[in-house]
Write a protein that binds this DNA or RNA. Structure first.
Lengths: 386, 386
DNA sequence: TATTAGTTTATATAAACAACTAACTTACGA
DNA sequence: TCGTAAGTTAGTTGTTTATATAAACTAATA
């Protein structure tokens, strides 16, 4: 093993254990104590190490270990999600812990003014910075196809030829990472859901469109030209009343946007604005019908994915499920009907998943730990329910 | 880099170039000439190297290189495919080249007598052996679910509790590998179709059942408990005449076995035996209808897979396509109708793909090169057509 | 004579090893 | 109860060993 590899393995150990010691690391990695000691000194010099406390001896006695962990004050990363009406931003310490989450409305959808907001947001945090190295990386959660750090298609955001990565790398002199939103949610579920080792999972995101992120063999799977998991673009027929309908995209029928649009058209814009979605659902069989069809379609899509990938678990990220648990329960029933057998999980706090996933991606990049599994603590704002 | 890694990289280079030289390897791997020289001597001692010819100098002069390649006479591997009526076996040199292919009928389907045949087949080759190390590994192509070298489910072959791996490892003292048939075909397409670099592909096999093998990020994807690609088990409705039918497995409608059974029932056993399948197809609209439905179903399945995985190419391995090209063309049309855009390839010589894939797997195992891409020469008995 | 292939020798890096110090627990005798 | 010896564990400091590189070599060409 080369020095570089061993250093990465020590850093990984430092990251993944709550706290550890040099002796522990040597035992776990089957390295000599002196090797670990040497690498430790390198890492310490770079500011990666925080001494937590002095540990206990065993019952047999012996010198007490100095317990250490990754120093979260090494630096921070920031992630952005440009939504339909809001710009979400999240700052995280290098260990993934939350520093600040913010969600601000976007008045006009002009890309330049959004970029201005992003810049301000970063500069504000840079002023308040108390970490050793400050800003380490910037990440963007993209609602579109991303291949090899390049945005191939961005249906919901007009970029007007602007290269986000290039601009912000020049502005802040740190790496800028771009990744598809569903892929980032999948990354979140893989890296933060660490009670169980899940190396193969799919994560279905339902927001303005529908996307699926895939973790295969413990790492994100992009497919050719980033096309993996583009299930929203799958075609289905609009066969409503028995007679065969036209071929349309799945997401034009059961994305959050599409569903809300159907409900709005059904109940009228006034009532739609006044009442809560849950009330509209409860009181109207017609509204329920819209959701039932969406649930059926989503179940089909999820079932197909389950058969193809044979994952260990399926995750759903959808604010509309949180708002309307009946919708989710309906979907689960439809899935069972089709023959689905894999555990299905629903994320409470789906607004945050792609940002946390983005933080993980940035941190991997900054630490040059791509391909290494870093385990993050599940934030308390997010729950994974059945 | 450690010695072990560098040795593997040199061996990989030796494998993947038709012929090369020490100087070339040093340049390609960016290693020092002396490092390569040292590793070369190790490999030479082990018998991996064959000196081919003395190369040419450049126009500037200079000593001529000694051209070398992997010595195929290092040893051989053997692969078996236990089919419905036949036992296929294939012997390959360590570089993947064919030594012998054999297909013999199985009189009774008793597992013990099949094992006896396998043993004899191997011993016969061991007698004729002229390679340095003889038999290196034994592989089995399994029509069923395999997880982590264990057969989870084998619907077409009654194993009666016999552990193939354990038995043959004890008998011949070489590693025995087990892998799913569709996965092996996918491995073949990945490792032998080397004109284009294809890191993400799916390979659909239609024989007694229907299976899909997946190469993701350049390596075989198994999914949780080997369940990836079990598309034959997907459910579909038997909605024939407008009214909704029962849920049945896809492979119960469009596997080769299922199709032939339907045709036999339609035309009667006598006629089915006498005439060629192509003639039956040409002469009967009813027979065509059976195939058309199968084509539609297969297109659906393939399209779903394409959307989920976003592969660079889709391969079909099916003897029935070779026998009936119209069936395949039909499938391609249906795929286009659904919106498929990915290149589709059909394998001529599909009987051999899983055996060649198995050889690749065994060779990877023997050389301890798992995770390294070894490029094999496409055998002339197999063509990949559009 | 310049150039390239490949080997030999010397040197630097880094991992393992062995022996060390530091700091603890336990057992036991006074 | 105290004190001390024996045993255990953490972590450091030379020393040895493995291995990659660099430099200097030989061999063989245009």
């Amino acid at each position: 093993m080369s020095r570089v590899t061993n250093t990465k393995r020590v850093l990984q150990e430092l990251f993944n254990q709550q706290e550890t010691s040099r002796a522990d690391i040597a035992r776990d990695l089957k390295l000599n104590k002196s090797t670990v000691s040497s690498i430790y000194n390198d890492l310490d010099e770079q500011g990666f190490i925080e001494e937590v406390r002095v540990g206990h001896s065993t019952n047999n006695g012996g010198r007490r270990p100095q317990m250490i962990r990754l120093d979260r004050n090494y630096g921070f990363v920031v992630s952005f999600n440009i939504g339909a009406n809001h710009l979400s931003s999240m700052f995280n310490f290098v260990n993934g812990e939350l520093i600040r989450y913010n969600r601000q409305p976007i008045k006009d959808s002009d890309i330049l003014s959004i970029m201005q907001m992003i810049k301000q947001e970063i500069m504000r945090m840079q002023c308040a910075n108390e970490t050793k190295h400050g800003l380490l990386a910037i990440g963007f959660s993209i609602h579109g196809i991303v291949d090899n750090e390049k945005i191939i298609d961005s249906p919901f955001l007009q970029l007007q030829g602007i290269d986000l990565q290039q601009y912000f790398e020049h502005e802040f002199h740190v790496p800028v990472v771009l990744e598809n939103e569903a892929n980032l949610s999948a990354t979140f579920e893989h890296d933060f859901y660490i009670d169980h080792v899940v190396k193969d999972l799919i994560s279905i995101s339902i927001h303005r469109g529908i996307g699926m992120g895939v973790i295969a063999n413990g790492s994100l799977y992009h497919g050719f030209r980033g096309m993996a998991g583009e299930i929203g673009r799958a075609l289905t027929t609009t066969d409503e009343n028995g007679h065969e309908g036209a071929l349309v995209k799945v997401e034009s029928l059961c994305s959050e946007d599409a569903i809300l649009k159907q409900v709005r058209e059904l109940v009228g814009p006034a009532k739609f604005k006044q009442e809560r979605l849950a009330d509209l659902y409860r009181d109207s069989a017609d509204v329920q019908a819209i959701f039932n069809r969406a649930a059926r379609l989503l179940a089909e899509v999820a079932y197909n994915a389950e058969v193809c990938f044979g994952p260990q678990a399926v995750f759903f990220n959808a604010a509309i499920f949180e708002e309307l648990p009946d919708f989710y329960n309906n979907l689960k029933q439809e899935l069972t009907k089709l023959g689905g057998t894999i555990p299905v999980k629903m994320v409470h706090g789906s607004r945050l998943t792609s940002l946390y996933g983005c933080a993980s991606l940035s941190i991997h990049r900054v630490l040059q730990m791509d391909g290494y599994h870093l385990k993050f603590k599940l934030p308390k704002e997010i729950q994974l329910a059945d």
